[in-house]
């Protein structure tokens, strides 16, 4: 089954350290080890521009540049426009998800989620890419 390669470099974007650790922990449970963190969209974009990333898990609500701003910037960047991007949202933001989808997120996941849900989301993203 098509899924994210275990060697791929993953970027976790969240302004809350605990959240980054939690997501990192979940990814590790799935066998992913090559993980980098950024604490807002602006920092994330700078890191993505540095190259080498194969997947992004980003929070929505962040200072400086939020998740929506980040996906918009990523999609309009020629080098990054097809980068798989998973948006983490809270239930309160559900109604806004359409906005994120329009902006081009590959999929979204609602907090809180388990490692299994995360795995499922990743597989769906890469299945679609594989087609």
């Amino acid at each position: 089954m098509a899924t994210l390669d275990y060697k791929e470099k993953i970027l976790i974007v969240d302004d809350f350290v605990t959240m980054r650790r939690i997501v990192k922990n979940l990814l590790k449970q799935l066998g992913y080890e090559n993980i980098t963190e950024a604490e807002d969209g602006a920092q994330a974009f700078a890191k993505l521009k540095g190259g080498g990333f194969g997947f992004v898990v980003s929070d929505w609500n962040m200072p400086n540049l939020d998740g929506l701003g980040l996906i918009q910037k990523v999609r309009s960047d020629p080098e990054l426009k097809s980068l798989p991007f998973l948006m983490v949202t809270a239930e309160a933001e559900k109604e806004k998800v359409i906005e994120a989808i329009k902006a081009g997120v590959s999929n979204y996941v609602v907090k809180p989620f388990t490692a299994e849900i995360l795995k499922e989301k990743i597989e769906k993203i890469f299945e679609k890419l594989g087609k």
Partner: peptide, 26 residues
């Protein structure tokens, strides 16, 4: 975690939130 069941095909087309609120998000 309600959206767990949302299939990927659903994602781009129909938003999971009530369609009626489509006006308000902007």
């Amino acid at each position: 975690a309600p959206p767990a069941k949302t299939s990927p095909e659903n994602v781009p087309g129909t938003p999971p939130a009530p369609g009626s609120s489509a006006v308000s998000p902007a």
